[in-house]
Structure formats: C-alpha cells, structure tokens
Computed example of a mutant assay.
Amino acid sequence: MVKYYNRQTKQYEEENVAGKGAISLIYSNPIGNNLLPKLASKKVLTDFYGKCCNLKLSRIYIKKFVKKFNIDMTEYENDIKDFKSFNDFFYRELSPKSRVINNNKSEFISPCDGKLLAIEHMDSNSSFRVKGFKYTLDDLIQDKSLSKLYKNGTCLIFRLCPTDYHRFHFIDSGICTCSSHINGRYYSVNPVALKNIDKVFTENKREYSILKSDNFDDIIYVEVGATFVGSIVQTYQPDIKVTKGSEKGYFKFGGSTVILLLKEGIITLDKDIKTQSILGIETSVKLGEKIGVRL
C-alpha cells in the first residue's frame, strides 16, 4: 500500500498505483531484488516502450486508462478523441483555468502535480535521506562546488506517478540556465522501488538547471527519469526571462520526479507538509498552490 496525505481532505489516502502488480513483482521479492530491477532499468527497454506509446495504435489504451484511474478530463485542453497516441495523451496540457497560480511574490508554490516529500534542512555535507537511503548533492548533480552552496538548505522531492499531469513549471520569475545532462539507469521512482533500490535518484538518468529566481535566490531544478520514461523534454528557452507558473518542460510516458534544491534560510514550508515529511509520508500537491513562504 502506498499511503499519502491529502491536504484538501486532511485525510490519509491510498494511491491507485498504475502497474502495481508489475512494480511489486520487480522490486519486492528476492528474485526481483537481484535481477528484474536491473532488466527494467535498461535504456533499450524504456526506448522500446516509448516507441510503442508513440504509435497510433496505442490510442486504444487511453479510454481504459482514464476510466481505471478516474482522470478528470475536464481539466485538460483536449478531449480523449483528439490525442494521436498514448504518449500524446500522457503529456497532455491543462486548460488555462484548471490550476490557479499563486502570484504572491513571498509565497512558494508547487511546480507540478504530484506527491511531495520535503527535507527542510539538509546537513552540512549537503546530504539527505529518503526511504532509509542517504543521498548527497555531489552524487545528485555531480558538481562539488555547486553543491557546497546548498548545505543546510531545503530539498523538495515531487513524485509524479503515471496518472498525474506530467508537465512541470517555474515556481518564480527569473532566468534559467541550460540543462546539464547526466546519464544513468531507469529505475522506478515508486515508493516500493525507493525502499528496495539503493540511491535511485543518483542512479537514474537526470537533468538539472538553475533558476536565477527573482524572489528565492538560485534554485536548482533536477528532473529525474524513471522506468519507461521515454524522454525529459525541456520547453523553456535558456537565459531568457521566464514568469512564475510558466512551463519548463514535460516527461514522456512513465512515473518521474522533479527535485528542487534551495539554499539555507530561503523558505519555511507549510506546517502540514513539514509534519507529514517528518513522518516519511508524501503530501499530494497541485501545480501553483502554496507550499511555503519566503523567510
């Protein structure tokens, strides 16, 4: 069971996991722990699956997927019949009125829809723990001089499951640098995998860039690929002014993760997110909603 906190209802809920049986088979049994995760993490398998999701024939799965996971299509620009493939549906665009971007300059917003786990204070070595495994920024972004600037800072981990809106946005106005690419594997980012595979985030393919934010100092954006994620697609223009809430990019098919890294003393998180994160429980958030405030 994958439990998360719904901040709207103030209740714990169980996530309806896409591919739950396969994930459990791969990551939660003795054979899977040694063999199946390595096979599932291979680029060739992800590339093949991504190509299948681009085929016109893959459209037949859209309606079933929407029904099974109760996806509200009124939130999106296009109707089911308008999508050219399953991948086209997967990175569907929201309609302009379906998310409200909080434009208060002192309030920090979520960059996407997803489940948030927050580490409000990384240690002096710029490291943090997720599901029992220790991560360091050196391993995550592979830049020691940059990672030192974020010691004792805040780490926000947004997990996007396959049923979520899969585009990610800027949390503030500013200038964003080009993305740096780090090759890696394609392990699942589902909590089942995170508990069983050592350092998924630093093993997987990922990209990072720096948003030179107008109100929250320099923020490192890290996008992490996962099993069956065909691509991480950046849609913004580097070194050109962006606005709060504008699109940064999207993931093609599969679960994925967006990690934001902030320097020490920049924000304090909302109480419910702090409380649940201390308990090791993710909080469901929506693009544009307030999750913290500038100090």
Rank of each mutant, 00 (worst) to 15 (best):
E207Q: 08
I141N: 07
T163G: 00
N196E: 15
N152I: 05
K248D: 12
L55A: 00
I232F: 06
L194Y: 05
T202V: 14
E15K: 11
L39W: 11
H121G: 00
K63C: 03
S256I: 04
N6R: 03
Y4W: 04
V192R: 03
L36K: 05
T46R: 04
G292C: 07
E264C: 02
K67T: 12
T268Y: 05
I273V: 09
N152H: 12
I266G: 00
K51L: 11
N6E: 10
D82K: 10
H166R: 05
R159L: 08
K134W: 09
K51V: 06
G174W: 14
V189M: 06
M73Q: 03
I31R: 02
G245T: 14
T154V: 06
C155W: 06
S24V: 08
F168E: 11
P162F: 09
Y165P: 12
G184T: 13
E120K: 05
K263I: 02
Q276S: 05
K244A: 01
K274C: 12
I60S: 08
K144G: 02
K64V: 06
K274Y: 03
E247D: 11
H181V: 13
H121K: 12
K3E: 13
L39R: 01
K134D: 14
I232C: 02
S277G: 07
S58K: 10
N183A: 08
K115R: 15
K290E: 13
N204S: 07
S213F: 03
L116A: 07
K131Q: 10
T177Y: 13
N152A: 02
P30N: 04
G132I: 14
F170L: 07
T9Q: 10
V17I: 15
I220W: 08
I291A: 00
